[in-house]
Nucleic acid binder design. Structure first.
Length: 274
DNA sequence: CGTAGACCCTGCGCGC
DNA sequence: TGCGCGCAGGGTCTAC
C-alpha cells in the first residue's frame, strides 16, 4: 500500500486533528506485528501524553508526544491508520487503538501484520536501529542527480533495485521507482555503473516530480490506501506503466512489459526506456 | 563488501 | 460453487 507519498498524505491529513490531542487509553488486540508489540511498554510510554507534532521519515510516520517520546508507526504492505469515533466498533485486524480524550480513536489496522507500532525516545530515535541506516530523503534539499550518481559509485546493481534500497534513498517502493524510471527513460535493469551524469539528473528530477504529483493527488489507491479520514487517492489513474503489462505505452504505443527483479514485478516500456 | 533469494502474513482474483 | 495458485504497495535476514 504505502510508499512515501501515501505516508505524507496520511501525515498531512492527521496533523490538524491530532496535534493537541491527548492519549487516554491504549488497547492491543494482536501485538504480533513485524516486531512484537509490548502492550505494557507501549501503554506506559504513551498514556496521558499529548501529541505535539507529526513528522515523517522515509515511510515511517512519527508522532511526537510530550516528555520526549515518539510514537513510531509503519504501515508495512497493508496497514491503515484512521481516526474514528471512540465508540466505533472494532474492525477485523484492528490490532492497536489509541483512545484520545477528544472522544476519538486512532485505529491501526493491518491484515498482513508487516507493519510496526513502537514508542521510542525522541532524542535517541535517529540512532535507533530502524532509522540509523536510512538514506537520503528524495524531497529534501540535497537530493539531485549529482548526489544520486555519487551514491552509485562502486556499485553495479540494477537501477531499479538501487532506487528501492532504503540505505541509499528512502521512500521509493515498487510503484514510484518503476514510474520514475519510465519518466526518465531509463531501463530498470540497467546497471548503475552505466548511467551518465545527464541521466542521473533526469532521474533525480523524475523521482521528485513523481512523488510530488502523487502527494498532490492524495496518493495511489490500488486496493485499500486511505488517508486518516478514510479518503482514497487518485494517482493510480496517472500511472504510466505500473500494473499495465500488455497495454500500449502512452508515449510511443509499444507494448508494456513486466519483468521480475529482486522478487518484485517491474513494468517498463521497451520503446521509451533504454 | 554488494547482491540475490527466502521469509514474515492475509486477502484477492483468476483459471480450472 | 469451490479449490489451488500466484500475486500484492515493505523490510530484514541469510548465504554466497
Amino acid at each position: 500500500m504505502p510508499e512515501l507519498p501515501e505516508i505524507e498524505v496520511l501525515r498531512r491529513s492527521l496533523e490538524p486533528r491530532l496535534v493537541g490531542a491527548r492519549i487516554e487509553r491504549v488497547t492491543v488486540t494482536n501485538g504480533a506485528l513485524r516486531e512484537p508489540v509490548d502492550p505494557a511498554r507501549l501503554r506506559h510510554a504513551t498514556r496521558g501524553r499529548k501529541i505535539i507534532a507529526l513528522r515523517r521519515r522515509a515511510k515511517y510516520l512519527l508522532l511526537d508526544l510530550e516528555k520526549g517520546i515518539t510514537l513510531v508507526v509503519h504501515l508495512g504492505m497493508s496497514g491503515r491508520l484512521t481516526l474514528v469515533p471512540a465508540s466505533a466498533s472494532r474492525e477485523l485486524h484492528e490490532h492497536v487503538s489509541f483512545f484520545l480524550t477528544s472522544g476519538r480513536r486512532l485505529r491501526f489496522r493491518d491484515p498482513r501484520r508487516f507493519g510496526l507500532v513502537l514508542a521510542l525516545s525522541s532524542r535517541t530515535l535517529p540512532r535507533d536501529r530502524h532509522f540509523r541506516h536510512l538514506g537520503t530523503e528524495p524531497l529534501g534539499n540535497g537530493f539531485d542527480g549529482r548526489r544520486l550518481g555519487g551514491l552509485a559509485l562502486g556499485r553495479r546493481a540494477p537501477v531499479k533495485s538501487f532506487l528501492m534500497d532504503g540505505r541509499i534513498v528512502v521512500g521509493l517502493g515498487n510503484i514510484y521507482a518503476t514510474e520514475a524510471l519510465f519518466e526518465s527513460g531509463i531501463h530498470p535493469a540497467r546497471s548503475v555503473a552505466r548511467i551518465s551524469a545527464a541521466r542521473w539528473d533526469r532521474l533525480a528530477r523524475a523521482v521528485r516530480l513523481t512523488l510530488e504529483q502523487a502527494i498532490g493527488q492524495g496518493g495511489t489507491t490500488l486496493n485499500d490506501f486511505t488517508d486518516g479520514a478514510g479518503q482514497g487517492g487518485t494517482f493510480q489513474v496517472s500511472l504510466s506503466v505500473y500494473g499495465r503489462e500488455g497495454e500500449s505505452c502512452c508515449r510511443c504505443g509499444k507494448t508494456i512489459r513486466r519483468i521480475v527483479q529482486g522478487g518484485r514485478s517491474t513494468f517498463y516500456c521497451p520503446g521509451c526506456q533504454r
